[in-house]
Simulated assay, not measured.
Amino acid sequence: MTGEFELFEVREPQTQSIPFVYNSPHSGRRYPARFLDQSRLDGLAIRRSEDHYVEELFGAAPDFGAPLLLAHFPRAFVDVNREPYELDPRMFFDPVPSFANINSVRVAGGLGTIPRIVAENTEIYAKRLPVAEALERIETVYKPYHACLRKLIARTHARFGFGVLVDCHSMPGNIRIAGSGIRPDFIIGDRYGTSASAELSQAALEFLEGLGFVAVRNKPYAGGFITEHYGRPARGLHAVQIEVNRALYVDETTLAKRGDFGALAGSIAVFMQQMAEFVADYAGDTALAAE
Score class of each variant (00 low, 15 high):
residue 178 A to D: 10
residue 185 D to H: 13
residue 186 F to K: 00
residue 200 L to P: 08
residue 191 R to W: 02
residue 205 L to D: 05
residue 201 S to V: 11
residue 192 Y to R: 13
residue 190 D to T: 12
residue 220 P to W: 02
residue 193 G to D: 10
residue 216 V to D: 03
residue 194 T to R: 15
residue 218 N to S: 05
residue 217 R to I: 13
residue 192 Y to G: 02
residue 212 G to R: 13
residue 189 G to W: 04
residue 186 F to L: 05
residue 176 R to Q: 11
residue 203 A to E: 14
residue 201 S to R: 07
residue 197 S to N: 11
residue 179 G to E: 07
residue 219 K to S: 12
residue 197 S to F: 09
residue 194 T to I: 11
residue 186 F to P: 01
residue 206 E to W: 14
residue 221 Y to M: 10
residue 201 S to F: 08
residue 214 V to R: 12
residue 221 Y to D: 01
residue 193 G to I: 11
residue 184 P to T: 11
residue 185 D to M: 08
residue 210 G to D: 09
residue 213 F to L: 04
residue 187 I to V: 15
residue 200 L to V: 06
residue 213 F to S: 02
residue 215 A to D: 01
residue 220 P to N: 00
residue 198 A to P: 01
residue 215 A to F: 02
residue 213 F to D: 00
residue 215 A to P: 01
residue 205 L to K: 10
residue 205 L to M: 10
residue 176 R to G: 02
residue 218 N to G: 04
residue 215 A to M: 06
residue 214 V to E: 08
residue 210 G to K: 12
residue 212 G to P: 00
residue 199 E to Q: 15
residue 221 Y to N: 03
residue 185 D to Q: 04
residue 197 S to D: 12
residue 179 G to F: 06
residue 218 N to H: 05
residue 217 R to M: 14
residue 216 V to A: 06
residue 201 S to L: 07
residue 191 R to T: 06
residue 185 D to L: 05
residue 182 I to M: 07
residue 198 A to Y: 10
residue 187 I to T: 05
residue 181 G to F: 12
residue 198 A to L: 14
residue 199 E to Y: 14
residue 183 R to Q: 14
residue 187 I to A: 03
residue 176 R to M: 05
residue 190 D to I: 09
residue 196 A to C: 12
residue 193 G to T: 09
residue 214 V to Q: 11
residue 210 G to T: 10
residue 190 D to W: 09
residue 186 F to S: 03
residue 178 A to P: 03
residue 217 R to S: 14
residue 180 S to Y: 09
residue 185 D to K: 08
residue 180 S to F: 09
residue 186 F to N: 01
residue 178 A to G: 06
residue 192 Y to S: 09
residue 212 G to L: 10
residue 178 A to T: 11
residue 204 A to G: 03
residue 216 V to Y: 02
residue 178 A to W: 06
residue 195 S to P: 07
residue 182 I to K: 07
residue 185 D to A: 07
residue 218 N to T: 04
residue 200 L to E: 09
residue 196 A to R: 09
residue 179 G to N: 10
residue 211 L to S: 10
residue 199 E to G: 08
residue 197 S to H: 12
residue 191 R to A: 13
residue 198 A to N: 12
residue 188 I to V: 14
residue 209 E to A: 14
residue 188 I to K: 01
residue 210 G to R: 13
residue 209 E to K: 15
residue 213 F to T: 01
residue 199 E to L: 15
residue 188 I to E: 01
residue 221 Y to P: 01
residue 211 L to P: 00
residue 196 A to G: 08
residue 192 Y to Q: 13
residue 177 I to H: 04
residue 207 F to K: 02
residue 213 F to E: 00
residue 195 S to K: 07
residue 220 P to G: 02
residue 177 I to Q: 08
